[in-house]
Simulated assay, not measured.
Amino acid sequence: MEQRTVLVVLFEGVQSLDVTGPVEVFAGAAHAIGDPDGAYRLHTASLDGGPVRTSGGLTLLPDSSLADAPAPHTLLVPGGQGTRPEDRGLIDWLREHGPRAERLVSVCTGAIRLAEAGLLEGRRVTTHWAYCDQLAKDFPGIEVDPDPIYVRDGHVATSAGVTAGIDLALALVEEDLGRQAALTIARYLVVFLRRPGNQAQFSAQLAAQTARREPLREVQQWITEHPDDDLSVDALAVRARLSPRHFARAFQAETGMTPGKYVERVRIEHARRLLEDTADGVEEVSRACGYGTPEAMRRSFVKTLGASPAEYRRRFHRTPHVTSTTHR
């Protein structure tokens, strides 16, 4: 079996989980395929070969300097503190050597370093939600999509913050070695196999602020756990022990979105998971998510995702008997 070299770039202030998450995934491939030599040769390198201190205070000792590192199949750039003047040597190295890698990968704000090196021009990418606006502003030639947890554009793969690097690494293992290998690694790491790249960085609960008052927080949780229930303002107001008018105003003031918008996000999020992970029919999914009719769910999907439920399932259904498609 071909052994792919994965070169992980280390630098002062790197986010430790951006490094260790993907590394553990690639390292787990040896166990998954029953080959002690593994499908991947992992190598870490800093600019001068010296140890680096992570943003969390850990010290990482690289295998070598970047100058002495082996030519990578997959070049992985993790995130961390923004590019600083003293990092110009790293950016120059990426500019020279990045185009030679068969696969170019970034985790979190590692995308900013790739952009600095001119390696993302004309590409569709993502990064941590807090830095998407900055990336788009500083590099107008890059199409920045703030929503997905990871994006594939040709040989370039970029991911959102921190744990999204694990999702992307699992996707790359599945691409290289097949679904069963990736599933074995995910089970060992006790993570999902796998959140699709199109999944939003924020769930409905994370996208909204958490209400200050306990009755409103309880309503938020109720909506999430009962998407098929009566979630009208009147019904939710009764649950919150408020008048409908007072409830609607208080909910928006404390969560940052109207009750209707929150319900819509919860329902479409739930419907996406069912379409991705089950063989339930569209009509059954629409009932389970509180849409009432398949047509109501179709309108919501087209409005929010630009695709009908049937089209969405064709693209992202992940059950074993369905052939997967390549993410955009």
Rank of each mutant, 00 (worst) to 15 (best):
M1V: 10
V8G: 03
G13L: 09
V14T: 09
F26S: 01
G28E: 05
G28C: 06
D37V: 00
R41L: 12
R41A: 15
T44M: 15
S46W: 02
L47Q: 13
V52I: 12
R53V: 15
T54V: 06
S65T: 07
A67D: 13
A69T: 02
A71K: 12
A71D: 14
L75V: 05
L75N: 06
V77Y: 01
G79A: 05
R88M: 13
G89R: 02
G89M: 03
L90F: 04
D92T: 13
W93C: 05
E96I: 10
P99M: 11
T109C: 11
G110C: 04
A111H: 05
R113T: 00
R123K: 15
V125F: 09
A130V: 12
C132I: 02
D133A: 15
Q134S: 09
L135D: 05
A136D: 05
K137T: 15
P146W: 06
D147Q: 12
D153G: 04
G161Q: 10
G165I: 09
A169G: 06
V173A: 03
E174G: 15
D176K: 03
L177G: 11
L177F: 12
T184F: 01
F192G: 08
R194G: 11
P196N: 12
N198L: 12
Q201A: 12
Q205N: 01
A208T: 07
A208E: 06
L216A: 10
R217C: 09
Q221E: 14
T224Y: 06
P227M: 08
P227D: 08
S232D: 03
D234H: 10
V238S: 12
A240P: 10
P244A: 09
R249D: 12
A250N: 13
T258H: 02
E264V: 00
R265D: 14
V266T: 09
R267H: 00
E269S: 14
L274K: 04
D277Y: 13
T278A: 04
A279C: 00
T293E: 14
R298K: 12
R299N: 08
S300W: 00
A310W: 01
P320Y: 02
T325N: 08
T326L: 14
